[in-house]
Design a binder for these strands. Structure first.
Lengths: 208, 208
DNA sequence: CATCTTGGATAGTGGAACTATCTCACTAGC
DNA sequence: GCTAGTGAGATAGTTCCACTATCCAAGATG
């Protein structure tokens, strides 16, 4: 198919597709002549994935490029699947260069240990959690360790579902973990809003 | 305190604080003379909140302005606390103007009904969920209704914790719900990453 | 053959979030 | 009192990002 057809198929403007080609987000089509190239289903899929990561996942195009690099690159050996995926996710989530201060990071490490989770103490998501927790503190939301325990219990259930659905094939696994993490996040966020509605409505009916 | 002190206290550049003042994100200090104004703790808190919503929550300054408007505005009556909060959150989460197509929205409505949640069929988060779910479909992540049920079960637990921690006072409640939703999202996202690590490591030790 | 597309290259646009400069009143030190 | 320096406010400029519009030459189309 030609670029204009790819545009029609994916709903993305031709000029934008050219831009994606330039930026390396979209692999070039098979050049037929100086004025025509052939694109196939893989291009449609790719464009849709880029749009999904951008619009639903909220990632920047630069980040998307890195994500694509990892999930399309073969040669990840079986043992390091999750490791590779996590490394990608770390870079995908990188927001500000400045980390949380040492104190709040230590609080997270302590909490993890007390909670009984087996996590590498240098895991970069510890820093993310520390920053997010700290922000809740400043806003006086009363997010204490007890409430964190209760959240963690439910999140562990979610993670169990996540892990149980990872395919055997190592290459598919990296793709699944990376995309499953990035794209399911918004699903869970929306579910949380809906569940809050349901729960509070139920409480209202039962309560006063 | 003077603007320079507020800057030192909050770690935000003076020029940026001036910009926030111009944009109405920061309430003006008490003007002492043509060349000095007095800022207090409320300003420090406000700046930290803006930074938290921006850096941790990933909101745009325009959105933050709307959020601040709602949580600082008094006069929300007791009954409409959650409604007001949800309306704010809808606007806070608004990304792209185009919604999901009718089919995938209907699937979400059907799923909600089968799942037994009591949700307004016109709730705007249904559209968010539809879009996010659709994106997972395109990526072939195998997110079927069964897996959605399992996610929902755990998310309901999270929402129960959320609702149980909302304060009685209606004004405090709006603030708590809005900020608690926006700022705790990143906490849960980070927790999910860590929990995946923990769960998969545990599975590895038990399994092959 | 004349016209219309197409792919590729280059430059321009608009919005967001700052940042730098300028002016002028005020204040502190002498 | 006088001068040097600082702070507040206003204005204009910068940087980055994600596109978008224009141009051109080669090739397809009628």
């Amino acid at each position: 198919m030609r670029l204009a057809e790819l545009s029609a198929e994916s709903g993305v403007a031709v000029a934008t597709l050219k831009y994606y080609l330039r930026e390396g987000l979209l692999h070039p089509g098979r050049t037929l002549s100086r004025t025509s190239a052939d694109y196939d289903e893989s291009h449609v899929d790719r464009v849709r994935l880029v749009r999904a990561l951008s619009e639903v996942g909220g990632l920047s195009l630069a980040t998307i490029e890195q994500v694509l690099e990892v999930i399309t690159e073969p040669g990840t050996d079986r043992l390091h699947v999750l490791e590779a995926a996590q490394r990608t996710l770390v870079r995908a989530g990188a927001r500000t260069p400045d980390g949380a201060d040492g104190g709040s990071t230590q609080r997270v490490r302590d909490w993890i240990e007390r909670h009984g989770w087996e996590i590498d103490p240098m895991d970069p998501f510890i820093d993310d959690l520390a920053r997010a927790w700290e922000a809740c503190d400043h806003a006086a939301l009363g997010l204490d360790e007890d409430r964190m325990d209760r959240y963690a219990e439910h999140v562990e259930g979610i993670a169990t579902v996540d892990v149980s659905t990872v395919p055997e094939d190592p290459e598919a696994a990296v793709r699944h973990v990376v995309l499953g993490t990035l794209l399911v996040d918004p699903v869970l966020v929306a579910l949380r809003r809906l569940a809050q509605q349901h729960v509070s409505r139920r409480a209202e009916r039962v309560g006063p």
